[in-house]
Structures are given as structure tokens and as C-alpha cells.
Write a protein that binds this DNA or RNA. Structure first.
Lengths: 146, 146
DNA sequence: ATAGATGCAAATGTTTTGCAGGAAA
DNA sequence: TTTCCTGCAAAACATTTGCATCTAT
């Protein structure tokens, strides 16, 4: 595996919080990190089961919550009621193709600054935000035109 | 009631689709329109029950779906897994207080323009978007400080 | 008369919790 | 050995569906 940095900080987090380092947590972390991103609990469970056939959904949910607390993962809620997890990284937003499901990430300092100004106007303290553009990616738009 | 425009278009929609005009649909529409916005099925159900004690959740869900199809309502999914409905109107975005649940609406032409430029860069055709800022409203921020 | 609507209860799908047994420190 | 974890089964939610009954047209 090539995720030493993340592995190290998981261990660190576990130690700091008097939590135990288990095979299940390791397996779930690995499955999560190997995914391209935006993975569901169900998908993690399926991946992990290949090598560890009796890890349950419960442990996946509990571990993903732990990874979120540890700052390694973060939850995303798109529009289908299923929680997805992605690797925690610099903030960014998403373009989501409604036809093929492709997800493109973007970030824009200009927009961030403007939204901060809006929040200030309402004396609202922004802790986090989501900004998602739904539509058709280049390819799907062409195909739709046929 | 003072919602003739909406009422007329519901009737219109019902007629066009060979659907029936019932007391329940009328009551649910009224409860929905009287709300300030961002109402849940549960809240609609509670309101409607005051005058119509035996309308069930089922009918609320079915009717709200109908109102969405008819273009009178639209679904919103914030981050707590509960569907909220709002009156279909000009596009706008939201500030959501994580402590008291207060929702403030905003819109910003500058941001809309910028996000369009980003999408163009990826040749992505935007059909709709969501932009939500989560944090603490003025009041909750003060209270938290105590 | 008949297509469509309703309300209940039961099913669904996702996520959480209680608990007895199991593993890490 | 003690504290924390795990997996199962059951519970909790929000939402949907099957079905017998009822109602608008």
C-alpha cells in the first residue's frame, strides 16, 4: 500500500483518542483510499468483503464516521439520499453529470470570496458550504444531440 | 384563500392529466402554500391534520410529488436526510444554520455568472445548481459564545 | 359505472443502536 | 484484565407500495 501519510495520521488519531488499531479499520481505510472518490458505504462494504468476508455494514458505518472525525474522509450528500464519502482534501466544489454520473471538481477563489461577503451581510458564520452544478458533461451533451 | 394563480394551475394540471380534484389535495396545497417555505412532509401532515384529522402521510407524500410534477413545488435536500419542499420560484440559494435550522435565502448574479464561466471551461451544460452555506446564524453564534 | 384516490398496514432502503462475545492494549 | 470493537439482530427513520375501500366524474 502507498498511503503512508494517511495511515500514519489514522494511527495518530487512534492513539490520541485511546482507540484501538484493528484489522477492520485498516481494511476499510484501505478500501476507501483506493477508491477514486465519492464512494458509498455499500461499495466500501463490498470491496472490503472480498478479503474480509465477515465485516458487517455496522463496522463500515462506524469506521467511516471515525475517519470523518479524524479528518481523513468527509461526507457528501448528492441528490439521491445515499451518503458518499470522499478523501478529505482542499475544499472544492462539483460539477455532476446527470446522465453519466461523472463528477468534475472545481474551485474558485472569486466565488468563495463573494459568498463570504453575502454571509457577512447576514452576520452569518460560514463553517462549510456546498456548491454543485448539475447538468450534462461535454460527451453526454453531444450524445443527447444525436 | 389567496392563492388563485396556483390553485388554477393545479386544477389545470389535474384536468390535463385526467386526475381528480379532491379535498385532500386542496388541503395539502393550501398548507404548503401557507408555509413560509422549506417545509417537510411531516410538517405539512401536522398542519393538514388540524382540519382534516385523517389524512395520512401517504397522501401527503403522493400529493407533494404531484405538486412537484405540476411545477408548483420543488424538492430540496439539505444535510439531514429529510426532504423539504419549497414553492417553485426564481432560483435562489441558501444559508442554513446548523444550530437552530434557520434558512436564509440569497441570490447573487456575480456568482451565477462566475459558475457559468467555470462550466463553460469544461464544456459542461448546467441545468440546475445548488449552493448552500452551512454555519451559525447571528443569534446562535452569540449564544454559542456564552 | 368506473377510473382514479385514499388510508391503513406492511414493505423498503439507509443508517443507528443494544448487546453478548471477541480482540487489542 | 480491562477497555474498546465487532457482528448480529433489531430498531429507527423517512419514504414507498399493496390492497381493499371510497369518491369524483
Amino acid at each position: 500500500m502507498s498511503h503512508e501519510v494517511e495511515q500514519r495520521s489514522l494511527s495518530q488519531y487512534l492513539e490520541e483518542h485511546n482507540l484501538k488499531h484493528t484489522k477492520q479499520r485498516e481494511a476499510i481505510l484501505a478500501a476507501f483510499l483506493e477508491a477514486t472518490g465519492h464512494i458509498t458505504s455499500e461499495e466500501i462494504h463490498a470491496r472490503v468483503r472480498v478479503d474480509h468476508p465477515n465485516i458487517g455494514y455496522t463496522t463500515v458505518y462506524r469506521t467511516m464516521k471515525l475517519l470523518c472525525d479524524a479528518g481523513l474522509a468527509s461526507e457528501r450528500h448528492f441528490e439521491d439520499g445515499v451518503t458518499r464519502y470522499e478523501i478529505e482534501q482542499e475544499h472544492h466544489d462539483h460539477l455532476v453529470c446527470l446522465r453519466c454520473g461523472k463528477i468534475i471538481e472545481f474551485e474558485c477563489a472569486m466565488i468563495e470570496k463573494t459568498q463570504q461577503e453575502i454571509a457577512d451581510r447576514y452576520r452569518f458564520r460560514v463553517l462549510r458550504h456546498r456548491h454543485e452544478l448539475y447538468g450534462h458533461c461535454d460527451r453526454c451533451e453531444r450524445e443527447a444531440a444525436t
